[in-house]
Design a protein around this nucleic acid. Structure first.
Lengths: 354, 354
DNA sequence: CTGAAAGCGCTTACAG
DNA sequence: CTGAAAGCGCTTACAG
């Protein structure tokens, strides 16, 4: 069903039909009603492709993320999607797997599709693409491009907070497990941790860097714990790393937090249900998505100000994997301490059931 | 940069430029080279919107899912995205939050955008929308529409397998916690569990149904365990429900699996790292996504066969939350039993470190 | 081999 | 208020 067909049916010109349909003035009341009725009757819907070509606006936004399986990006993307939808924009999603090549082709395709703006989590910091001549917001990570809006977590401060927490418990030998050094996030987390240690007058951390896989968390933990002078506390710079590290510590029979404290940057659903629950810095994912959307939408609305560089702070959630060094017992919080393992209902606060 | 501009620059007709650019025959070698060179020089890229309008194909596919934060859908969507990308299709993503109203508007918008096909996880079983007159694949859930391809997990069989596992350990009082009764998945899981019990000659299960939230998992577990004749085993029909249920059991000091066994339908990252690790049926999410994409792509390629209704089987992963009823000790597997709690390194297989 | 023309479906000055 | 015309950028018969 097209405007042309409606026009023919009613003996009108397509231009008149178009005006009636788009609610413009200068259309006779009777004509308007007739057009609307015909449209309704035939279930007419404007062809967005034709409209986009003519108006030169697609009302589409491209979103480029490394990985939708990562809760980190899934959370931001969900908020983006909702914001865009609320403002009448559709979302074209591309996934890069952190591959700069895929990122380039994704951006090229989005540009071909005439998206009006892009939210991008850049794969690597040395920028992998030239300028895009359309509004871009870099989210979470940054490519070092300066003429672009960026919305990031306060990685530096958050890492410092985690280190501060461990230090305040009395730890002095604190190690860091981190991900890909080419990500801005990794570099900032490591820098934040180092700065915090220096500020506290503690010895520099041993930093193990590679990637954000669970396997690396496992491997790094093994290295730390079997090396000389093993640390009394580990800061894992992502939840995946913490997962691998925790797993390995448990496999090696190293009591956490009794023998080793573990703090993560990046929170997850299961951190408060696993045993012991994991102390972690919760990142403000929803806010990051929300603000990214707002900035991009304001650009699309024509805002001309110079690039914004936003940092959103997370907060530390102290759970059961951190305690003073050398403590023999685990540090589970009272109401979560029972039931999960051999200590059974004996020390259960509620007594449980037969 | 448009074909028109290239044509003007080279003193050619746009039709010639178009033919050269699209690699059609009947273009002089010299002309072709000149066009390609000019295109390269100016960084020409075809306008996909114009091309779509003219060719009447957008090379876009719509994907409509309830929630990207749910690993369940995120996993399928990731595979879809990759398959579509490999075949030159872009993906337009819409999220419904299981709201039929949002689903309707999402589908309307996708149709307006002239997507060539849709992969849909329907919100509710009584179909919420009329036919779409374009290829649709219903994934994971089904709306009851019969003239549509469907790709689902073998929910019935998988639930039965979980029940069979619990029964084989000796459980006779098995309860079920399930999600939204209007989802086809929920109904099939419950039916599968019931059928399995009946087939084994066991008493019918107590079935608590509401939604897939963690809160409901918690609440349902509380009801089961504080009621008369509490079950010795619980089958939670999703990982979120299992999470809530496990949490609540732990809070109440009920030893798992010593006092109560728990099996989940739906696997998650943290199931093998939490204490005890959770016995669960892993669903074939990647396969479901892959097959959905294949079917849709074959339809787009013109396949005319009658609707396919595919079922993909999952597999049960036995971990630490299930054991024979009445067992006093927890049933963690040896290599994962240590370190997490007060039992410390004493029974650690590796001895651990100082 | 190349060009002029028509058209995808819609919008928008420009006349009347 | 309404219509005829041009055009968004591209493609594709149809002539030459």
């Amino acid at each position: 069903m097209t405007q042309k067909q409606i026009a023919r049916e009613l003996g009108l010109a397509v231009s008149t039909v178009s005006r009636a349909l788009t609610g413009q003035p200068h259309v006779g009341e009777a004509t308007r009603k007739a057009v609307l009725a015909a449209a309704e009757r035939h279930g007419y819907r404007p062809n967005a492709v034709a409209r986009a070509l003519r108006r030169r606006e697609t009302r589409m936004i491209g979103v480029v993320v490394p990985d939708m399986l990562n809760h980190f990006y899934a959370a931001c993307t969900t908020v983006l999607q909702e914001s865009f939808e609320d403002h009448g924009y559709g979302m074209l999603l591309a996934v890069t797997g952190n591959d700069p090549q895929r990122e380039r082709t994704a951006l090229a395709r989005l540009r071909d599709a005439q998206v009006e703006g892009v939210v991008l989590v850049p794969s690597a910091t040395p920028r992998s693409t030239g300028p895009l001549d359309l509004p871009v917001v870099e989210m979470i990570r940054t490519s070092g491009r300066t003429q672009v809006d960026t919305v990031q977590c306060a990685e530096h401060e958050t890492a410092a907070e985690a280190i501060g927490h461990l230090a305040s418990l009395g730890h002095r030998r604190i190690a860091v497990i981190a991900g890909e050094p080419e990500f801005s996030t990794t570099r900032e987390r490591v820098a934040g941790a180092r700065a915090a240690l220096a500020g506290l007058g503690l010895p520099p951390a041993r930093v193990l860097t590679r990637d954000h896989t669970r396997a690396w968390g496992t491997e790094a933990m093994r290295q730390l714990v079997t090396g000389e002078e093993p640390p009394t506390a580990v800061f894992a710079a992502s939840s995946e790393l913490a997962l691998g590290a925790l797993h390995e510590a448990q496999r090696l029979g190293i009591g956490i937090p009794g023998r080793l404290s573990l703090a993560a940057l990046g929170n997850t659903d299961w951190f408060d249900v696993c045993r012991p629950p994991v102390t972690a810095c919760a990142q403000p994912l929803a806010e990051v998505g929300m603000i990214s959307a707002q900035i991009l939408l304001s650009r699309l609305a024509g805002a001309r100000r110079s690039p914004s560089h936003i940092r959103v702070s997370g907060r530390l959630v102290v759970r059961g994997t951190t305690s003073a060094p050398g403590a023999r017992r685990d540090g589970d919080r009272p109401r979560e301490a029972s039931g999960a393992s051999a200590d059974g209902p004996a020390n259960s606060p509620t007594g449980g059931l037969g």
